[in-house]
Amino acid sequence: MADHSLSSSLRLGLLGAGRVAAALGPALVAAGHQVVFVSSRAPGPAVALAARLPGCRALPAAEALGALPPADAYLLAVPDAAVPALLATLPWPPGAVVAHLAGALPLAVFEAAPLVQGGVLYPLQTFSAGRAIAWPTVPLFVEAATPAAEALLLTLARSLSEHVAHLGSAQRLRLHLGAVFASNFTNHLLGLAQTLLAEAALPFELLHPLVHETVAKALAAEPNAFAVQTGPAVRHDAPTLASHAAALAAHPAWQHLYAELSASIQAAAGG
């Protein structure tokens, strides 16, 4: 379990009401904190999320706020591209601890708001509506511009997760890049597989045991998942590769992707 003994109750402002905020808000409350407000561009999501958080108010778009309600920290659960503008335009209380939740944004983004104590609270997880998150298992990575902000964010992170560490911007970017390959690209490839089977009137469930074993085997082979690669590309099975390419004639973009991935597999295996 996460270490709640390290945490006093913090008053937190949550800017954003999307998938990450919808998962994080209830987790913060469960960890003993109070989310004092939720703000989002669209009022509906903020109202819906605030209704799930005791004592929380739904506020209008952050840009329309005349002043921010007092809080121990403000968490920016907004798209990466929106962070610089929010930092530059909002009426932040001097000295406020403000943290974004992004993997790819450096700590240097807080140079746009020199009066705040900037920080990062990055949860290494994928978030989707309707999916419960086991927060004690989620790696949380913290970085901050001041010792005080880092101490607060570490305390907050440890109240949520058993896996908390400091991580600098450069390593966090590389971690986020790896996460895109491991999660986002994998999800996309599974979507392609699902479509190909559907075109042949085959259920995607046929692939479930294969997918589970593939992931389990790759994780067990750490640190060299390449070592357990199988399939026609790694064994240079030219007839099968050609048959697959022909079967993808109706999907030229996927045909190209198949060829590129096959070439990458062969290169990783040493040609």
Results as ranks from 00 to 15, higher is better:
residue 1 M to N: 13
residue 5 S to M: 11
residue 6 L to C: 09
residue 6 L to T: 13
residue 10 L to R: 03
residue 14 L to S: 08
residue 16 G to Y: 03
residue 17 A to K: 02
residue 17 A to P: 03
residue 20 V to N: 00
residue 23 A to R: 03
residue 24 L to D: 01
residue 28 L to E: 07
residue 31 A to G: 12
residue 31 A to I: 08
residue 32 G to T: 10
residue 33 H to Y: 06
residue 34 Q to A: 13
residue 38 V to F: 04
residue 42 A to I: 02
residue 47 V to T: 14
residue 48 A to W: 02
residue 50 A to D: 07
residue 50 A to C: 09
residue 51 A to Q: 15
residue 51 A to S: 15
residue 52 R to V: 00
residue 55 G to T: 08
residue 59 L to D: 06
residue 59 L to E: 10
residue 60 P to Q: 08
residue 60 P to R: 12
residue 61 A to I: 03
residue 63 E to V: 06
residue 66 G to S: 13
residue 69 P to N: 09
residue 69 P to R: 10
residue 70 P to D: 13
residue 77 A to F: 04
residue 78 V to M: 13
residue 81 A to L: 11
residue 85 A to C: 03
residue 85 A to F: 02
residue 86 L to A: 09
residue 87 L to E: 09
residue 91 P to L: 02
residue 91 P to M: 08
residue 91 P to Y: 01
residue 92 W to L: 14
residue 94 P to A: 15
residue 94 P to L: 10
residue 94 P to N: 11
residue 99 A to L: 13
residue 102 A to M: 05
residue 104 A to N: 08
residue 119 G to K: 04
residue 123 P to H: 07
residue 125 Q to G: 09
residue 127 F to Y: 06
residue 128 S to K: 06
residue 129 A to C: 01
residue 132 A to R: 15
residue 138 V to S: 03
residue 142 V to S: 02
residue 144 A to W: 04
residue 149 A to S: 06
residue 150 E to Q: 15
residue 152 L to R: 11
residue 152 L to T: 02
residue 153 L to I: 09
residue 153 L to G: 01
residue 154 L to P: 00
residue 156 L to V: 03
residue 168 G to A: 13
residue 171 Q to E: 15
residue 174 R to N: 06
residue 176 H to A: 04
residue 187 N to P: 06
residue 188 H to L: 14
residue 190 L to W: 13
residue 191 G to A: 12
residue 192 L to D: 05
residue 192 L to C: 12
residue 193 A to F: 10
residue 194 Q to Y: 00
residue 195 T to W: 02
residue 200 A to N: 09
residue 201 A to Q: 15
residue 203 P to M: 07
residue 205 E to L: 11
residue 207 L to K: 00
residue 207 L to W: 09
residue 208 H to M: 12
residue 209 P to C: 14
residue 211 V to Y: 10
residue 212 H to Y: 09
residue 215 V to C: 10
residue 217 K to D: 11
residue 218 A to P: 02
residue 220 A to G: 10
residue 223 P to Y: 08
residue 224 N to G: 02
residue 226 F to N: 07
residue 227 A to C: 01
residue 229 Q to L: 12
residue 229 Q to I: 05
residue 231 G to A: 06
residue 231 G to R: 11
residue 233 A to W: 01
residue 234 V to H: 04
residue 236 H to C: 09
residue 239 P to F: 08
residue 242 A to P: 06
residue 244 H to K: 11
residue 251 H to G: 08
residue 252 P to R: 10
residue 254 W to E: 11
residue 255 Q to V: 02
residue 255 Q to M: 07
residue 256 H to C: 12
residue 257 L to N: 05
residue 258 Y to F: 13
residue 261 L to T: 08
residue 262 S to I: 01
residue 263 A to N: 00
residue 263 A to K: 08
residue 265 I to H: 14
residue 271 G to K: 11
